[in-house]
């Protein structure tokens, strides 16, 4: 099969064989909101924020193969409501106190909340986890109280760094990210790893010691534009 076309919110776009809906949308400059997916990493399909309707069926755009003639709904009030619910769930699952968080302004969860107009107090209860912070490593700390289980650190370490510093343990609401072995100091993690870079963790769990707040608040990534603006900019060109 060669290239084919399908539509997203009425716009016809071209896709290549083997692309997911999200891959094809990215190429066409149409942003599908996402948290667990990241360019260059395997798809996980866990956060569900990329939920779209494909021929009327809800699917995750990051894992669903594009298909000829598919009709995809992306930015509809209904879908954005689902996404807002999911983002609220993630806020309530962890402990998020943005004003005192080093990630504020660079944080994809926070930016997604802005994009989805999550401005009023939310309806869900707070789960208030209390997970120990792993500060054993000389250069890196891991605070999973803010973790959204996107698994990006896990895949980045395995597939890009060739290491395996992180992994999931536990199940259900107790499932969480942990370091390989006893703690971070027992791993071969280095602050120069891709998995540790500011690009990988979408929130503020992986902390590079001594370089916090290097960029002042107000000049950070999402102080400059809504999350997704870089992808949509492609279309405006």
């Amino acid at each position: 099969m060669s290239d084919f076309t399908f539509t997203i919110d009425g716009t016809e776009i071209t896709a290549k064989e083997g692309q997911t809906i999200m891959d094809a949308a990215d190429d066409a400059g149409i942003y599908v909101p996402r948290l667990c997916d990241h360019e260059g990493l395997r798809h996980q399909g866990g956060c569900r924020v990329c939920t779209v309707k494909a021929d009327g069926r809800s699917v995750s755009a990051c894992t669903q193969p594009a298909a000829p003639g598919l009709t995809v709904e992306n930015e509809t009030p209904h879908i954005n409501k689902l996404r807002r619910d999911l983002v609220e769930m993630l806020f309530h699952e962890g402990n998020h106190l943005c004003p005192i968080c080093e990630a504020s302004g660079n944080c994809e969860l926070q930016a997604m909340a802005y994009r989805l107009d999550m401005t009023a107090p939310t309806k869900f209860p707070y789960l208030e986890p209390c997970r120990p912070v792993d500060a054993s490593h000389p250069d890196i700390a891991l605070d999973t109280n803010r973790c959204i289980s996107c698994g990006r650190c896990i895949r980045a370490s395995q597939d890009v760094d060739g290491k395996g510093v992180f992994g999931y343990v536990g199940r259900g609401i107790h499932r969480h990210v942990a370091a390989n072995g006893e703690d971070l100091s027992h791993t071969d993690a280095e602050v120069t790893d891709f998995a540790i870079s500011s690009e990988v963790c979408p929130v503020g769990c992986i902390i590079r010691k001594r370089i916090g707040f290097a960029t002042p608040i107000g000049e950070r990534e999402f102080d400059k534009g809504l999350i997704g603006h870089k992808i949509s900019a492609k279309r405006d060109d």
Binding site: G46, R48, S149, R171, G172, H174, R175
Partner: peptide, 8 residues
């Protein structure tokens, strides 16, 4: 625990 809606 893999996906948000069911886990949380």
């Amino acid at each position: 625990g893999y996906c948000t809606p069911c886990r949380v």
